[in-house]
Write a protein that binds this DNA or RNA. Sequence first.
DNA 1: CAAATATAATAGTATTACTATCATTCGCGC
DNA 2: GCGCGAATGATAGTAATACTATTATATTTG
Lengths: 222, 222
Amino acid sequence: MIDLNINITINSVLYTKDPDSSDLGRNIITYSIELINEIGFEKFTFKKLSQKINSPESSVYRYFNNKHMLLIYLTSWYWSWTVYKIALATLNIKSSEEKLKNAIDILTKPILIDNSFSYVNEVLLNKIIITESVKAYHSIDVDIENKKGYFESYKDVINRVSTLILEVNPTFEYPHMLITTVIEGAQQQHYYSEHLPSLTDTKKNKDSISNFYNKLIFKLIS
Amino acid sequence: MIDLNINITINSVLYTKDPDSSDLGRNIITYSIELINEIGFEKFTFKKLSQKINSPESSVYRYFNNKHMLLIYLTSWYWSWTVYKIALATLNIKSSEEKLKNAIDILTKPILIDNSFSYVNEVLLNKIIITESVKAYHSIDVDIENKKGYFESYKDVINRVSTLILEVNPTFEYPHMLITTVIEGAQQQHYYSEHLPSLTDTKKNKDSISNFYNKLIFKLIS
DNA sequence: CAAATATAATAGTATTACTATCATTCGCGC
DNA sequence: GCGCGAATGATAGTAATACTATTATATTTG
């Protein structure tokens, strides 16, 4: 995939101070991604992060109110990046089927290459999305946070791909349901294939997850 | 559904002392289900629970090492109960298709009636499964916990329904993938229809989630 | 009725999740 | 190159969390 090294813009409701505006802020993002991968979101604390980046804990709090907000920021970054990738992968393609297929590939295949231009390691971030992102929107404050617009970039992905589904079959009744099922199903399967293999059937080959969901979508909408 | 008021047996690796063996233990289960529903799993603590049941915090710790173990216990109870319901709903039915359909209904429809014989409120427990259960197996210790057998009852559900799928179509290659996609997809949709409605398409009618996944399964395997 | 077992009452510790204050440094405008 | 403001650093402190430990008091069972 062509890398244009564009900047992902994140809605300012998702931070107290923009992490993209300073070295410290970018360090917080880079090393929180590393640390969450190392020790998991539950054991991750701003204190441990601040030790890793040699800055006081209170400086981290200037960017994010708590680790929950940081996780929402990271998921939002990921989905904004995904929107961008889908836009690129569907650009100038005439066939609706091909556009949809390209989008599904982006959504179901694991991220294997880190772009490495930016301070975000996309491979590690993808692992966080698979393992931790459900915790971002399964909280008691989900309704309040939804009203504040915390989940807009994920909704953007869902709406764009729903549109692609309707391009292929304008009478299909459940485009949102189908695409959320596929995105989150694929993430589950990646998680299971690594940690709970008896819950999946991926021994056969690397692309079986992506193939399965591709077939699922096209069988259902045609 | 006929209620036989049977006892759900839970593997002893899931507790320090069996909560089903004492009034205090049963109280811990009953009121932890209530409290987790009220304040969410993140804000739930053994201290708050102990105040609710008027027992010292240290007594709760005799039953469960921490709230994470309690959550795993609750999910395990739920899936054991689900296995039992599927067994009942497929008993004496000859048609493989009908058996599978009955199982899918159990797995995709929300729980509306509390059996109320036992100390477990199944309606509230179902809400916990929908909102919190992902947190039970998305942890950094998942591999260790899997080896200890913490997730056996969920695997049991998946294996039984996979068998039903293979009864309908013995050559279908991805029964586990399909059924985990459906179970977790349905839970997601119930969550979305309540909290993030723009991610789903459930306005139309109450059974649209169940209908969607029923169609999905039968379209894919036939 | 004694012994074993469970629970209650109480206390204590390390860590977490913050908040507050003040000193220092760094970039920019003049 | 000096002064000013903004960002960061250094340090301290607090309430809540997540436990562990100890001893007293019930309760159950043999």
